[in-house]
Amino acid sequence: MVIEDPKTNKLIEVEKLPDGTYKVTIYDKKTGEKKTITMSKKDLEKLLKAL
Rank of each mutant, 00 (worst) to 15 (best):
K30W: 10
D28Y: 04
S40T: 13
E45F: 14
K30N: 09
G32S: 13
T21S: 09
V2G: 07
T25M: 11
K16F: 15
K7D: 14
I26T: 09
K29D: 02
K7H: 12
M1R: 03
E15Q: 07
K46C: 14
D19K: 06
D19F: 08
I37A: 13
Y27D: 03
T36L: 09
K42F: 15
G32R: 03
K41V: 10
P6V: 10
G32Y: 12
K23M: 05
K35L: 10
L51R: 02
T36H: 10
K49N: 15
D28W: 10
D28L: 02
E45L: 10
I3G: 06
E15H: 09
L44N: 00
E4K: 01
E33P: 03
K46I: 15
K34N: 05
T38M: 15
L48A: 00
E4F: 09
E4Y: 12
S40N: 05
K49R: 12
P18D: 12
K49F: 14
K41G: 09
P6T: 09
Y22P: 00
K10C: 06
K10N: 13
A50R: 10
L51Y: 02
K46Y: 15
E13P: 00
K16G: 15
M1I: 08
N9G: 10
V14F: 07
E15G: 07
K35I: 13
Y22V: 02
T38V: 08
D28A: 02
M39E: 00
E13C: 11
D43S: 05
K35Y: 15
K29A: 07
D43G: 08
P18Q: 11
M39A: 04
E4A: 02
L47D: 00
L51N: 03
K10Q: 13
N9H: 07
K7N: 08
V2W: 00
V2K: 00
Y22Q: 00
I3P: 14
E4V: 03
K10T: 13
T25P: 00
T8E: 10
I37G: 08
T25D: 02
I37Y: 15
Y27C: 01
L11F: 04
P6E: 10
E15W: 15
T31E: 08
D43V: 09
E33D: 08
K41F: 12
K42L: 14
T31C: 04
G20E: 09
I37C: 13
T38S: 10
Y27K: 02
K35G: 11
N9R: 02
D43H: 09
K16I: 13
T25Q: 09
I26W: 04
K29P: 02
S40E: 05
N9V: 04
E15S: 09
D19I: 06
Y27G: 02
I3M: 01
L47I: 09
K42Q: 14
A50I: 08
K16M: 15
G32C: 08
G20H: 08
E4I: 04
D5W: 03
K29M: 14
M1Y: 00
L48P: 00
T38Y: 15
T38L: 15
K42P: 12
L11N: 04
K46R: 10
L11E: 02
L44G: 10
L47S: 00
T8H: 10
Y27F: 08
D19Q: 11
K42D: 11
E45H: 14
I26Q: 09
E4R: 00
E4H: 03
K29W: 04
V24H: 00
D19W: 11
K16N: 11
T25G: 04
D28C: 06
T21F: 05
T8N: 13
S40F: 10
T36C: 13
E33N: 07
T36I: 14
L17A: 10
L47Q: 01
P18E: 11
P6G: 08
K35W: 15
V24N: 00
L44W: 11
A50C: 14
K10G: 06
K30V: 05
M39N: 01
L17G: 06
K23Y: 05
L48T: 01
E45N: 08
E13M: 13
D28M: 02
G20R: 06
T8R: 02
I37V: 10
K34V: 14
K7E: 12
K34H: 09
V14I: 08
K42W: 15
P18M: 09
K30A: 06
L11H: 06
L51D: 04
M1C: 15
I3D: 15
V14N: 01
V24C: 03
G20V: 02
V2Y: 00
I26Y: 04
K41D: 08
I37K: 09
G32W: 15
S40K: 07
K46D: 15
V14S: 03
E45Q: 07
I3C: 12
D28H: 03
N9A: 08
K42T: 09
I3T: 11
V14K: 01
L47Y: 08
M1K: 04
K7F: 13
K10S: 13
E4M: 03
D28P: 00
T36Q: 10
Y27P: 01
E13A: 08
T8I: 04
K34F: 11
E45W: 14
E33Y: 11
Y27N: 02
I37E: 06
T21H: 07
M1S: 11
K30I: 07
E13V: 13
A50T: 11
T25C: 07
K23L: 03
T8C: 07
L11V: 12
P18L: 11
T38K: 06
G20I: 01
V14D: 00
K49V: 10
T31M: 05
G20Q: 14
I26V: 13
T21D: 07
K7Y: 11
